[in-house]
Design a protein around this nucleic acid. Structure first.
Lengths: 331, 331
DNA sequence: CCGGCGATGCAAATCGATATGCACAACGAG
DNA sequence: CTCGTTGTGCATATCGATTTGCATCGCCGG
């Protein structure tokens, strides 16, 4: 019951391994008759080439590393699925790594992927800078899911969070709300930071007041949202509206609002970010900024494949995907 | 900027590649002095062994294939995460494949994993039988997430759906409901089939009536639940309660109930299965059977590691995880 | 009849690591 | 003094594929 090698096929077809290889790859002509015999032998023996050996020889593995922050956040599975679908047709398989946003894990997983000779890497960096990542992976095709400003060290797929947030603030403003807070993600390189900055800018532009004590940083979890919500809602001069850096936090905030006996959207307006499936399942249905997860995943797959095909010399590309506000019942 | 090989290290340290390998693996003694030099060279050059070459030689890849049905169902990311976490400490990485329950995809992905020389495979089979899978993967360590009865062709992790469903029916019965329907998944080898059977058995045992027209089969999606819900709720003699084969279907059913202007749980009791995060976010909070996704994933990782360690001769194991009902507001 | 060319197939090198056999030195015991 | 043992390091085979260089054969034109 041992695995069958190319040599076994060769013996059965009465030719050399070389000829079998040529017959299967078509890189050199093989007479119709022997090709026939070889294909039959392949069939009878159930031969499938050992891809590890093949990879070592041709220096490509038809695999890509995909480093995701936290797959328990429903936003990510959608991205993973889109990436998987985009790569699967081309015969690529994804090695997934979960970083939990920790620098040590991020670096370790990156090195491991490189050592495994993946053909490319997709990562949403949380702790490492693009420059650091590039240094670790060398010239490998690399796609960053990141809004990080500054020099380009890799192809980048980003979402135009700014316009979505602006639309959210405008929506509040249109409804006559002149004061708003913001619950962001962990401080540092998280997407929350940029969304917070966009929020500040939009609020200023529209003359919406934001007190410093209405701003909070918590992990991207429901518990984080609950905690921040309790804090903000207990304030003597609490804001009339709160925008959250993602939907999960918003869910926690709604928990806190319910605890406090507030009714949405009148006592408090809540706006989330991402538009995960759950968003229009909860009560009240969550008004949120649509983060096009499928498009992000598909764009990553496309960008990576293009980079793999075209080589490292072509200029890096940036693919900025639009976001927009979807109005439901929470604001 | 080329990758650095073991030979480069050897040159720099003034020894042969063999000695470098021995120094790093410790499989043969190397004098303290030369080991020192070698480690320094490794450090200076930033050498990381090429795992593809290593894999080819030692015939192990430290990777496992994980074939999941549909990662957009929130139940699965949790399983994926638990598997990942369980394997990551041991240095394994998972190649994920999404089968969408299609036989062709299932078979193709299995063959691909085998060709890639993964050290083991975890799969929730939807179309292929255990025997067929075993034939494809040969003697490879294999863990099935499956309630499929019959001969054991691999280690198996299963959930005791029967007891959870029984608890659900008992709950309905206790509340005086004597008629119930069931919305199952696709016909065939899906987990829905077994849950339906458990439902029938429990209903019979407790004297709960179930008319054949109260049973439906739909895909495991919200749209499926909506569709089936419309059908069942339009019936002249519609059931007082409906149990669903998973939570997503239950969400769709609740959509349908809302459309029909029914109030839960009084006009209609709804019970789901899985207890995804969303379950206690929606209104009404979903009464459901808890499917311990994390435990399932962890058990799979454990079973696979044990099989990898102990070899193919040890008897196959079955790990049956308990399920239980959690009562909330929908029933 | 000879030289050249295309078609066909094989031997051997290669990818980058690990593992085995062997050489050589130093050293202690008999 | 010899023999065996231990420590140390190198040359070489190996994993299973692809690919290059070379040999052979048949065929055709000159």
């Amino acid at each position: 019951m041992k695995r069958v090698h190319i040599g076994d096929v060769a013996v059965r077809a009465g030719v050399s391994p070389t000829t079998v290889s040529h017959a299967l790859s078509g890189r050199r002509p093989v007479s119709e008759a022997t090709r026939e015999r070889i294909l039959q032998a392949v069939d009878e023996l159930g031969y499938h080439p050992n891809l590890v050996a093949k990879s070592l020889r041709i220096q490509r593995t038809k695999s890509v590393g995909f480093l995701v922050v936290d797959i328990s956040n429903p936003y990510y599975p959608t991205v993973v699925q889109a990436v998987h679908d985009g790569l699967a047709d081309q015969g690529y398989v994804s090695l997934i790594g979960i970083t939990y946003g920790e620098p040590a894990a991020e670096e370790m997983l990156l090195r491991d992927m490189v050592a495994r000779n993946v053909d490319g890497i997709i990562i949403q960096p949380m702790s490492l800078t693009p420059a650091e990542i590039r240094r670790i992976v060398g010239p490998l095709p690399l796609v960053l899911i990141s809004d990080h400003e500054g020099e380009l060290y890799a192809d980048r797929v980003q979402t135009n969070d700014c316009e979505g947030i602006a639309a959210a603030v405008r929506h509040l403003s249109d409804r006559g709300i002149r004061e708003a807070g913001f619950i962001s993600g962990p401080e540092g390189r998280s997407p929350g930071t940029l969304r917070l900055a966009s929020f500040r800018a939009a609020a200023q532009a529209l003359g919406v007041t934001v007190a410093e004590e209405w701003i909070d940083h918590v992990p991207f979890t429901r518990a984080g949202g609950l905690e921040a919500g309790r804090r903000l809602l207990a304030l003597p001069n609490r804001p009339r509206a709160i925008i959250c850096a993602n939907d999960i936090i918003a869910v926690g905030l709604i928990d806190a609002a319910r605890e406090a006996g507030l009714s949405l959207p009148d006592d408090l307006a809540v706006i989330g970010f991402d538009d995960i499936d759950t968003a229009n399942l909860i009560t009240p249905h969550l008004t949120t900024v649509v983060n096009p997860a499928r498009d992000v995943g598909a764009a990553c797959a496309r960008a990576l494949l293009r980079r793999i095909e075209r080589g490292p010399d072509e200029a890096y590309t940036v693919d900025a995907l639009p976001t927009h506000l979807v109005r439901r019942d929470s604001a």
